[in-house]
């Protein structure tokens, strides 16, 4: 009985300490030093929120760079991957159809090596990045769709270069480019 009383009291105490005080303290500090990041790294454009820097979006239009395939079509409630095993015929078919669609959509010849992230779905279904190679493969298609002249096309290449993120601290992770930020940047090319 004594043990049960202690247990109840100490449990209540830790619930308040680690369940209320701790998250509130962290929230307080976070909102003070990193307000934008703590609130989801949202992007404002023309006075309204058009997305988050960290959450990928789906792009089907020929004037935009396309994101990776997604098992949840970039709808975040809930997030997740396909969870298909490598011997699942659905995965093979899915990868083949993504490859064909990418080749046809970007007018590439059938021997082009496509970066693997463009034929496989991500783990979160919300991956905001693609590799720089995947962006360069879409370059001509976008320039054509936007009827860019050679000067504008140079700016387009420059956009990709500028927005490519190298591995963090030179050694962590992979080179990558944020598709939403890239598409926002190319909208500004005049």
């Amino acid at each position: 009985m004594k043990t049960l009383m202690i247990s109840l009291k100490i449990f209540l105490f830790f619930t308040i300490l680690t369940g209320l005080v701790y998250p509130l303290v962290v929230t307080g500090i976070a909102q003070l030093i990193f307000p934008a990041k703590a609130n989801g790294s949202l992007i404002l454009s023309g006075g309204r929120v058009i997305g988050s820097e960290l959450i990928g979006q789906q792009f089907n239009s020929p004037v935009y760079f396309t994101s990776r395939p997604s098992a949840v079509s970039y709808y975040p409630l809930p997030s997740g991957g396909s969870n298909l095993g490598l011997t699942n015929v659905k995965l093979k078919k899915f990868a083949d159809s993504c490859r064909t669609r990418f080749l046809v959509f970007n007018h590439l010849d059938s021997l082009t090596m496509i970066p693997s992230e463009m034929i496989f779905a991500s783990a979160s279904g919300l991956d905001p990045h693609v590799s720089p190679q995947a962006a360069f493969l879409q370059l001509d298609r976008i320039a054509t769709a936007r009827r860019f002249n050679s000067g504008q096309k140079r700016k387009l290449v420059q956009c990709i270069r500028d927005l490519t993120e190298a591995p963090q601290f030179l050694c962590l992770g992979e080179s990558r480019i944020n598709v939403l930020l890239l598409n926002l940047a190319i909208d500004k090319i005049r």
Binding site: A30, Q31, K37, A38, S52, Q57
Partner: peptide, 18 residues
Amino acid sequence: VGQGVVQNFKHYETVQSL
């Protein structure tokens, strides 16, 4: 949080994507 992990008590944000 400094790297971008969210920490708030807000409503889910409904956005009109690009």
